[in-house]
Design a protein around this nucleic acid. Structure first.
Lengths: 195, 195
DNA sequence: CGCGACGTTGATTTGCCTCAACGATTGTGG
DNA sequence: CCACAATCGTTGAGGCAAATCAACGTCGCG
């Protein structure tokens, strides 16, 4: 399956675009190969593109004052990633986006996306729905962070995204779940005393 | 200034809609008076509407396992509020949305919103931009939760939203910032030992 | 006026972090 | 293809930020 086909089937799930529109949409994207450890976005540079992952895996993260890094999101096949705040406001990024594996992506740059949205009502709708779903997702994650213990968050993640968890380095998962790698290791090995 | 005028000037800031379109948009909303402590959304009921605050203040929150509640968001004049996850998927809510003061809101129900978005490309764009900004906002909050201490989060909030902070009960602010009321009290009164 | 909601304060506890040391695994240059 | 260095994960000891528990002051309002 080619990258274009992956994006096509992603778009088909919306049940919104015609065959021709899907073709036009996909045509605005460029396929790029990315090596492990390569960066798509870096702080102080503006995120110029939105990236759709065809194959491989990415993480976005910020580096806090003390130098520790905090994973904001992951993306594997069929997911999107960028520094969203930087991208939509076209302002300097605060995040890194880096490849965790050799990957293939399809990307669209900001100007192209604006043209696409202007050209057709349905394209606008696609981006609206993606933003809405992203927002709902973020809200669920926030609730989980506020209401659950480190161990509960880990169990929940493993249950919900088992296939993602397997492919991630521990330090990335730990910092996504808001804990240290040491503590995650203890949870995994049941070294944390339970009540 | 009437409720309709408030919403109009909110929409004008987009620089996107004509006078007539703004009128049409606003006409889809209903004005409602809400008493302090009254609920707009409750768990297990689907959030039927999206609410624009004309005057007053609201908070949305979830209740965790141990019975403690966690504030997800606030809304004062010119802000929007609902259980977003429930609203966009039209599924049962997990949150409460409650009035902190006697308030006036303008609300649109889900079906009306769909009609509005279908009727005009620019209306779709308005909702898309709102969702995008909400997502960017949530992401900044998530970063703040992951990287800052309780005291830093408090200072940051006070600095950024001084007028909001004044009007909120402490317990609501504390649970928004992810700490207990007791701890917030100690921070406010400099009872927390600093390095 | 009295009750319930809200905020404060101190004593104690705890969930998670920090620091440090050490295997295991992966990657890389010679 | 091996040797050595990074990177990654594990384990334990000790420490700290924030929670919990408990008691009490205060204010608003029915």
């Amino acid at each position: 399956m080619t990258g274009a086909d992956k994006l096509k089937s992603f778009l088909e799930k919306f049940n919104l675009l015609t065959e021709a529109q899907i073709h036009e949409f996909v045509a605005s994207f460029t396929e790029v190969k990315v090596k492990k450890r390569q960066y798509l976005v870096q702080p102080n540079f503006t995120a110029k593109s939105r990236h759709f992952v065809v194959s491989g895996a990415f993480r976005s993260f910020v580096v806090g004052d003390k130098g520790t890094d905090h994973t904001i999101s992951f993306a594997i096949e069929d997911w999107w990633i960028t520094d969203y705040n930087s991208y939509i406001y076209q302002q300097p990024a605060t995040m890194f986006v880096v490849a965790l594996e050799d990957s293939i992506i399809l990307q669209i740059d900001y100007q192209q996306e604006q043209l696409l949205k202007k050209s057709n009502h349905n394209f606008e709708t696609v981006f609206r729905i993606m933003a809405e779903r992203g927002l709902a997702f973020q809200q669920r994650r926030l609730i989980s962070n506020l209401t659950q213990t480190a161990e509960e968050r880990y169990d929940h993640f493993i249950e919900k995204y088992p296939q993602v968890a397997q492919r991630l380095p521990q330090y990335a998962l730990a910092s996504f779940l808001g804990m240290t790698t040491e503590f995650l290791s203890k949870i995994r090995n049941h070294k944390v005393k339970r009540k």
